[in-house]
Design a protein around this nucleic acid. Structure first.
Length: 519
DNA sequence: TTAGGGTTAG
């Protein structure tokens, strides 16, 4: 072009970003004023966008300063791009400062701020801001905002909020948007309703890479390796190419189901068949896979060859330490914890796991040495906890600590009562909790369902087998006692079909209660 | 010529 103006410069910058090359876009941005052509708000927004892609906070701040000098600081689009840039650079407070400075906001700017919170693990703030958007503006949320909000619910494990948002998605007609659907599939899986997740997935018309990957990962996390691998196969047959995340899901599935050799085959096929080079995440997953089944020497050899990014080292050696502890390999546990301590990250976890490893082989001298070392250095391990949402309240559980849980004693008493009654029905305490002895092996798998896990949180007891509950709910007549029990169980377990159906059943005071079959 | 969303190992 003999004549270039600000539009042609900006268009070329935008073009570079569009094909995934933000750096040349920024080079053009620097070059442009030297030809006496000066940026307008469009140019600035494009430059800021390039910084977002690069998470380049330093350049982003410089451009922000220029925007102030040029007097464009109240431009709606520009502010929105700044919110996004600071968010992608993990500078959440700065994002919020820009957001608060805006006189006019639209759905895009609100979404940008909400996403900033979600992407920086501040799900609660994301949901608070979403509520504020609904209450204080007359704008309607769109598919972008819904995707972010559902992501926030998923990361917090907020099932109720997730369901409410899902309803809103349906009401607003975004339930056929693939991105929103993927987010919902992921949300239900993370909130403990795998069946819902699968149902939504099956409703998606022609699901692409990300819905498939979400479902593969979801199934893998549930220990449903076959389900996960079948889906992977189905996806390949449809001609959808997997990406690095899909393989992470596949490896995770193999790892958590003991399918080590199959997992190794997948790892080797990544590059050969699909042209995807495994990165440190895949190798770390493989180290974990080998370690879990006790193939610790192989795991250690592999771990040594991985040159992971600095921030990944703690995960790699933490995983190896954990499996060394499980398989009482003191030598490797010492090696792994030393490497972990070198990274100076997750120190408390390293100390505690190491001390537990010594404890598992009865080496109490070292246990007390490590514990006093922790005390001396002021290293404190925040105890892990679980929580369950019931209606609008969250109940937190710590392992072995009934007192700190509200209604904890009530729950424990109920569990004891249930255990007694279940034993009468042929259950025995097995390694995995209560196991029904009169069923064939296959049926047993169905019985040991998700409920069991939720009820077991913090109490060390497993009961209420899933299969039985469902069967009993058909043609059920309840006495007052059983009804009460079911109501409490429903509250704890929070399953729809129980909550919904309990109120519909007739109550019987006498022996005609049919749910005694259950007990 | 400009801004926002979904899947990721321990």
């Amino acid at each position: 072009m003999s004549d270039r103006n600000v539009v042609s410069w900006t268009a070329l910058m935008a073009g570079y970003i569009h094909i995934g090359l933000p750096k040349p876009a920024l080079q053009l941005f620097e070059k442009m004023p030297k030809t006496y052509i000066f940026p307008n708000p469009f140019t600035f927004a494009t430059a800021v966008n390039a910084c977002s892609f690069l998470s380049d906070l330093q350049t982003g701040r410089k451009i922000h300063a220029q925007i102030e000098i040029y007097g464009f600081q109240s431009n709606l689009v520009l502010c929105t791009s700044l919110i996004d840039m600071y968010g992608k650079s993990n500078y959440v407070d700065e994002s919020r400062r820009v957001f608060d400075s805006m006189e006019y906001k639209n759905v895009v700017s609100w979404t940008s701020m909400i996403s900033t919170y979600t992407q920086n693990a501040q799900g609660e703030d994301a949901l608070l801001l979403f509520r504020e958007f609904i209450k204080s503006t007359s704008n309607k949320p769109n598919q972008f905002m819904f995707a972010s909000v559902i992501n926030a619910c998923a990361s917090l494990g907020k099932l109720v909020a997730g369901k409410v948002t899902h309803s809103a998605v349906i009401r607003h007609g975004y339930n056929t948007n693939e991105v929103v659907e993927s987010a919902i599939v992921d949300m239900y899986a993370k909130c403990g309703l795998f069946e819902y997740s699968n149902k939504i997935f099956r409703q998606i018309q022609n699901p692409g890479l990300i819905p498939y990957t979400s479902m593969i990962v979801g199934a893998a996390k549930y220990g449903l390796a076959k389900f996960s691998l079948d889906l992977f196969q189905e996806m390949l047959e449809k001609g959808i190419r997997p990406n690095d995340v899909t393989f992470l899901g596949v490896l995770h599935a193999c790892s958590h189901s003991g399918l080590v050799d199959i997992g190794l085959e997948y790892l080797n096929s990544m590059h050969e068949k699909y042209g995807i080079s495994p990165d440190s995440k895949h190798y770390i997953c493989t180290v974990d896979m080998l370690g879990r089944t006790g193939r610790l020497d192989e795991a250690y050899q592999l771990a040594k060859t991985i040159p992971p990014e600095v921030q990944d080292r703690e995960i790699l050696w933490g995983s190896l330490l954990s499996s060394s502890r499980t398989h009482s390999r003191l030598d490797l546990a010492v090696e792994a914890s030393q490497r972990l301590i070198e990274t100076n990250q997750q120190l408390a976890t390293a100390y505690v796991t190491m001390s537990n490893t010594f404890a598992s082989v009865g080496n109490w001298e070292n246990v007390s040495r490590l514990r006093s070392e922790m005390k001396r250095n002021g290293i404190y391990k925040e105890p892990g906890c679980s929580w369950v949402e019931i209606k609008d309240r969250t109940y937190v559980f710590y392992a072995g600590d009934v007192k700190s849980c509200e209604r904890g004693n009530e729950v424990v008493n109920l569990l004891k009562e249930l255990e007694v009654r279940m034993k009468e029905r042929g259950y025995v305490r097995g390694r995995k909790g209560l196991v029904f002895v009169d069923v064939e092996e296959e049926a047993e798998e169905v019985i040991l369902g998700l409920h069991s896990e939720k009820l077991a949180l913090g109490f060390g007891l497993i009961c209420i087998p899933k299969g039985i509950t469902i069967r009993v709910m058909k043609n059920l007549r309840m006495c007052g006692d059983c009804h009460e029990a079911f109501k409490v169980i429903s509250e704890i377990v929070e399953r729809d079909f129980i909550v919904r159906d309990v109120n519909r059943f007739h109550h019987f005071r006498d022996g005609s209660c049919t749910c005694k079959d259950f007990w």
